[in-house]
């Protein structure tokens, strides 16, 4: 299911323009990271993908659905959206009920729901916490519950808004595993993140936004080496990319594996 965005403009108020003519196509099964400075319009952009916001002008389609013609609740069967703040969505007495909520709304059959929920809990390592009240969990785990509750909806497109903020190493690895698993099952993943190393290591396409426009769009290798342009939107290249450049490696490297390989080649 492709996402087509054409000449999208959006203003929160007549003088608060957040998106300024964005055109993009995201193909089914792509793993896309969206980066860019605070206030660049990242959240505003992804909120258009499930119809929470409607274009001021231009259009957004999910497959052949124009987002202005379908309710958010209907679009939810195609696009899952994990909010940045889990406390805005958790309400159930236990984790299990919370995770079942989405798939039940979508009207799936009982045994499909059971399967999806079980899978989502496994992926987020919440198995064993099913009976806990989400509000008794730490903020980190609450974030995982929110994530599981969207995964269980089994949508072809999944959006994460800053899943890595405030997370420790173990949790970032956990989230990376979830994304890898989604990729394996052919889902489209769109993730907003400020963690550029995480971005370099887990995505096949990077879109840098700046002031409501697309600044750069391409593979991590093409995009993440462009230090001067990225600086316009307050982003540094990944650590190893900066290092590679400084020690004079020929090509742009972005991951540890690439760096070590290039180093070995140079050593001969």
């Amino acid at each position: 299911m492709n996402i087509t965005i054409s000449d999208l403009h959006f203003s929160y108020a007549p003088n608060v323009k957040a998106l300024n003519g964005i055109s993009l196509t995201i193909n089914a099964g792509e793993q896309v990271a969206i980066i860019g400075q605070n206030g660049a319009g990242k959240t505003t952009l992804v909120r258009h993908l499930n119809g929470l916001l409607k274009p001021t002008s231009g259009s957004v389609s999910i497959g052949d659905w124009d987002t202005t013609k379908h309710s958010v609740a209907k679009l939810a069967s195609k696009v899952g959206y994990v909010f940045q703040n889990p406390d805005e969505q958790l309400f159930s007495k236990d984790v299990l009920t919370e995770v079942e909520f989405g798939p039940k709304n979508l009207g799936y059959k009982k045994n499909k729901i059971d399967q999806l929920v079980k899978r989502a809990l496994e992926l987020t390592e919440l198995t064993g916490k099913q009976e806990t009240n989400p509000y008794d969990l730490s903020p980190t785990w609450r974030k995982m519950v929110a994530l599981a509750s969207i995964l269980a909806m089994d949508t072809p497109i999944v959006i994460f808004d800053e899943p890595t903020t405030g997370q420790d190493f173990t949790n970032i690895t956990r989230i990376a595993n979830v994304i890898a698993e989604l990729k394996k099952t052919g889902k489209t993943v769109i993730t907003i993140t400020h963690d550029i190393d995480f971005c370099a290591e887990n995505f096949e396409r990077v879109i840098a936004l700046s002031k409501g426009q697309v600044l750069l769009d391409g593979s991590p290798r093409e995009i993440l080496g462009q230090e001067e342009i990225l600086a316009q939107t307050y982003v540094d290249p990944p650590q190893l990319t900066r290092l590679g450049k400084k020690i004079g490696l020929q090509e742009t490297v972005i991951t540890p594996q690439e760096f070590l390989k290039a180093l070995a080649q140079r050593a001969g």
Binding site: R47, L52, S71, A73, A76, S77, G80, F83, Q89, G102
Partner: peptide, 18 residues
């Protein structure tokens, strides 16, 4: 303000509100 955000989050999970 908060109600609107929560409403958004739940609609995104397929909750019919209309």
């Amino acid at each position: 303000r908060k109600g609107a955000t929560i409403l958004d989050a739940q609609r995104s999970r397929g909750l019919e509100t209309e």
